[in-house]
Design a protein around this nucleic acid. Structure first.
Lengths: 201, 201
DNA sequence: CAAATGACAAATAATATTATTTGTCATTTG
DNA sequence: CAAATGACAAATAATATTATTTGTCATTTG
């Protein structure tokens, strides 16, 4: 992780912070550890981030964008003749990604879980991003006459997000080990899908 | 809290434990504190409960039964010409009760939150109780042709429980302060209700 | 003799002490 | 002169030490 330019950039600091977080976990990484990895004094980091919390949040925000929102954007961008099926794929993928990172990138997932408790604003923005993506799929479904226009798109997106919280909210991560969790989502989805299509079939 | 009979009963111990939990909170109450309140040696309590965890769980189980399940049973028992509306009242009341105790009986609610993390079995039994009650209302709704028999009653009950987790699971308690929480439930319910009634209207 | 006691060891928690970390800012460096 | 440094105080965390709590069981009590 040698610096490419003469001056230290936010990105370089965030890269080093992420690496340190993965190694020591969010409880054990200090600003000093990150500075040590970069070969600079810890005071330098305070010229780029106003506080440790700001650095943690910046790293988490980027992680969410790259690891969760970007892969989901692929689904939204892909052409689909059945937007309702696509919406299910979208939500199933959201759940799958959360489960995957909870297991495979546990320290960064813990960081994200911590930030969820502390930085409500950042998380609200992230949820907003997810709901916007879902909104696109819902609108597409309405145009295809596969989803009934029973409420505003944004309300529907929010309701779908909340109704599936158990499957993607980090507070429930320990419940994801259950053998029946996939089946449980499947059944919740059946109910929601019937709600979305009501008065069409 | 003077003992009514010559021998110490489980109930007396649980009463004293509940009183102590309310006063000191689940983190600060020791078995010795409970024994002190009863005027007995702490060893005596171990003749009635195998461990502190068992006592905590017994108290929580009783609390859930009395404070949550019993009031809900009133709704289930009441005669209703519209079982679907009754089902909504049931779930709204479940949410209202959780919110009420989170605010008004915070130490016992904290005890319940702790137990939810530790004693999965006890909580699974409690959820089972709730789902049985919901099952009765769902069956009633099917008979009244207000709910479509799209899946097994127990599956529907479980799905409704999971889809509304955000509003009654203690891990979300801090989110219940949001001003829009009631409206959010209202919208999730609209979607679920349309799912439940699909192919009837 | 069933119920309760209380002395005891091991585990856990609380407190006191020491070490690290966070955040600032006057000074240094390229 | 913008960027980085490093000395410093205050806040926080880690460790060591002491006190309490948990759980057991041989003995006592009504």
């Amino acid at each position: 992780m040698s610096k490419s330019s003469s001056f230290l950039s936010k990105t370089e600091i965030m890269d080093a912070a992420e690496q340190t977080l993965r190694r020591f976990g969010p409880d054990k990484t200090s600003v000093t550890d990150v500075a040590k990895l970069l070969g600079v004094s810890h005071g330098t980091l305070y010229r780029h981030f106003p506080s440790k919390a700001a650095l943690r949040e910046a790293v988490t925000e980027r992680w969410l964008e790259e690891q969760i929102v970007a892969p989901l954007e692929q689904i939204v961008k892909a052409p689909a003749d059945n937007a309702l099926a696509q919406l299910k794929v979208y939500i199933a993928r959201l759940i799958e990604l959360k489960l995957h990172y909870a297991e495979q990138d546990s320290e960064m997932f813990k960081m994200y879980t911590d930030v969820t408790m502390e930085a409500a604003e950042l998380i609200e923005v992230h949820i907003q991003r997810i709901m916007e993506q879902m909104g696109i799929l819902i609108d597409r479904g309405i145009q295809q006459k596969r989803i009934a226009q029973s409420a505003a798109t944004s309300s529907l997106a929010r309701s779908l997000f909340h109704a599936t919280s158990r499957f993607h909210h980090p507070a429930h991560a320990h419940e994801w080990r259950s053998a029946s969790i996939e089946q449980e989502f499947e059944q919740v989805w059946q109910l929601l899908e019937q709600g979305l299509t009501a008065s069409i079939h």
